[in-house]
Amino acid sequence: MEILAFYILGVGAVVTAIVTVIHRNPVASALHLILTMVFLAGIFVLLNAHFMAVIQIMVYAGAIMVLFVFVIMLLNLQGEKWPPMTWKKLLVSFIGILLVGYCVIKIPGIFKGSILPMATQVTEDFGTTKVVGRRLFTDFLLPFEVTSILLLSAIIGAVILAKMKINKG
């Protein structure tokens, strides 16, 4: 059951991600990216990390992607046309496909001999809000605070940019 759910979510995430790249309509691309986020959240749920899943949907799918979608909608981008193929591009893409294929073939070989560390020490309350919060405010307090200061400075920068009067002439 869990394996089945994982494969559905994983295939969904990969397919929507690919569609995001190759779709001609930018709005459709953005919406597929949102779907990718939702599938990733589903994978987080399978990993018993409910908090991460919800935050994934809330922050990425709910907040950040809305702005993306908006910028695209307001720019009113039309569907892109494929650029004309030249020999140079064909060659480059051929090499690129070869390299990626080589990597994909080689990946199982890397993990073949090694035994991956299994998550054995998972406690009962793994991934709950309480545990995540506690870790965030004890072990990772400094990175957390630094991140929040970074975000604060970003907000202030945005406000200053928005308030700036553009001098004409």
Partner: peptide, 19 residues
Amino acid sequence: DVGLLYIFAFASLAIYGPV
């Protein structure tokens, strides 16, 4: 366990309908 955050997550997805 996430309770209300779940509601907020889906409330944030509700934006896409109007958009």
